[in-house]
Amino acid sequence: MVPSLARVTTRHQELGDTWTLELEADDPDLLAFKPGQFNMLYAPGVGEAAISVSGDPSDAGRLIHTIRDVGKTSHALASLEPGMTAGVRGPFGTAWPVEAAEGTDVVVVSGGLGLAPLRPAIYHILAHRERYGRVAILAGARGVKGILFPNQLAAWRRHLDLQIEISVDHADTSWRGHVGVVTNLIPSADFDPADTTALVCGPEIMMRFTANALLDSGVAENTIHLSMERHMKCGLGHCGRCQYGPYLICRDGPVMSYDRLSRLLTVKDL
């Protein structure tokens, strides 16, 4: 599959090592993504990486990706300046079950950069707020300076029909929010566990323990959805690079329900 070209229109620094790129593409297929899906972004001459879409699915004209600069390819992608060009293939993978979640309460739990792949789902839910029950967004971060999209969270906090809680692992005494692991927020979140859809994204250990905390609170395994991450190559389910037990994350994921993952998540080195 040949990448389409997309031009960077803006580049915004979110955190010390994290940038959001806004891209303009001529290929309409690239823009028709579902919340939770990813694109393969190609930095010319360097390489390709799977990056979740972090923008609003109803915003037809723009493709938005939030990229953490952690390696050669992600560094090249995060360094693309406005006017420069990237290759894009996609969108790929499974989506957050935002339609299946209609009529239920929704609890969104993010850890660190995990808020980026969840943001399209939050946009969708807010755009169709009347279709959902109670909605809680629980965001965890390493520290206050590691909170992704702080202005967006502050804006969402103004929605009276949305519970937003942020917890950082540690903070100095100027921080007035929660301190502790994000799972601590679950017992006091406002949702009916018997009728809740949970969307979880963050480091794998965080997702595992979040799923456990949700199970402890009474949420069913098949209504907890995680976004898995593995190195991907083809994005099409052919090469096997992202194999995870019986699954290929690029094809069967990244969004998968916990009942399919629970046994695999505790297997060492999988």
């Binding site: 540690h170 903070a171 100095d172 005494t173 100027s174 929660h178 301190v179 006091s188």
Partner: peptide, 23 residues
Amino acid sequence: GRVSLEIKAPGRQSMQFMTVGEG
């Protein structure tokens, strides 16, 4: 209400390591 659990460290602000609340 909410309570912050903190540890003092010389040369820097106290660090919050946990907050607890109702219940």
